[in-house]
């Protein structure tokens, strides 16, 4: 099957998932108790006519399914509407937070690879030896440490006690040295568990490659161990790890929700938690949907990348 056909097919299967995701997002948000109009008027004795006209202004007077369709129609054109609570457009509000979460996510992702891949290789080569044990225990510790707890402790030690880093984000553009320095702790916090996962995956995949015929053959032919490792085994196992790492977006987003709280990081996670407590439905919807779409698209891309790397995936017929 050609890559084009595969791409089309794979993209098609995302459609029902996407529709399901919009329905679920909408449903969850509207099941939540609370009326945004109550919030808007501060629970006061507002003239019923005023109340009704406000309701109509945000389409809250229509049946739920109509609201859903209207919303989907708007979202399809990237129009996220206006928040009744802030009176501002939801799109820019969310877009303003997005770069922060992306910056944090990407740096944590890179850090986890930077730690996980070498650690995994060393562990695989040293199968059963002390380095393997150390990396294994390190990975277990990384997985078992609650990230918010780690963040709090890091912030306390390096921010409050030692004063090496700021405890709240600096008043600087995202792409600045100050900001980069501040991001060190959140990045470490977010990357810890991911790095542990990558280490373990890398170790096992490398291990398997090392046991393969061709590696043994290469060794038998007298190739240097270094060459064997880097040229053959590593390349093959890396593709596996990188594609799996692509799927870590869900883990990253989960972590971001918590880590952003700890480090006062103005990202999507913080916006989500804030908006839920404000009953800011359109914002919650936009954030959740964006997260879902990002996950779906990431899965799709990873799948395609994977198919390019390994044509057997699409050999289907």
């Amino acid at each position: 099957m050609s890559i084009v056909r595969y791409t089309l097919r794979r993209a098609l299967t995302s459609v029902p998932v996407l529709i399901g995701a919009t329905a679920l997002t909408f449903g969850l948000v509207h099941l939540a108790p609370g009326d945004p109009i109550d919030v808007l008027v501060g629970f006061d004795h507002v003239d019923p006519a005023t109340r009704a006209s406000l309701r109509a202004e945000y389409n809250l007077d229509r049946p739920l399914w109509q609201q859903y369709l209207l919303w989907v129609r708007d979202v399809a054109t990237l129009e996220f509407g206006e928040s009744p609570i802030t009176g501002r457009d939801v799109g820019p509000t969310v877009a303003g937070r997005l770069p922060h979460t992306i910056a944090l996510g990407v740096s944590a992702w890179l850090l986890s690879l930077a730690i996980g891949i070498p650690a995994g290789i060393v562990a695989a080569v040293d199968d059963g030896g002390p380095a393997d044990e150390v990396s294994r225990i390190g990975a277990l510790v990384g997985i078992a440490t609650p990230n918010f707890w780690l963040g709090l402790v890091l912030l306390f030690v390096f921010g409050v006690q030692l004063g090496w880093v700021r405890v709240t984000p600096p008043d600087a553009p995202l792409a600045s040295l100050e900001m980069a320095w501040f991001m060190v702790l959140p990045t470490i916090t977010l990357a810890t568990a991911l790095a542990a996962v990558v280490t373990r995956l890398m170790r096992s995949s490398m291990r398997r490659e090392l046991e393969r015929e061709y590696v043994r053959g290469a060794r038998a032919r007298g190739l240097r161990e270094r060459t064997v490792l880097l040229k053959h085994a590593l390349r093959n196992s890396l593709t596996a790890v990188v594609t799996v790492a692509g799927l870590q977006i869900a883990l990253l987003l989960d972590g971001a929700v918590v880590v952003e709280q700890v480090f006062s990081w103005p990202g999507m996670g913080q916006l989500l938690v804030e908006s839920i407590s404000r009953r800011d439905f359109p914002v919650v919807q936009a954030v959740v949907l964006l997260i879902a779409v990002a996950t779906i698209v990431a899965n799709l891309l990873v799948d395609l990348a994977y198919a390019v790397i390994d044509p057997r995936i699409r050999h289907d017929r």
């Binding site: 306390f156 921010g159 409050v160 004063g163 700021r166 405890v167 709240t168 008043d171 700890v262 006062s264």
Partner: peptide, 15 residues
């Protein structure tokens, strides 16, 4: 500066 966590406000003041 918008700092929603009470503990972070204190930390920021102390820092």
């Amino acid at each position: 500066r918008i700092i929603s966590r009470p503990a972070a406000r204190r930390a920021a003041l102390e820092a």
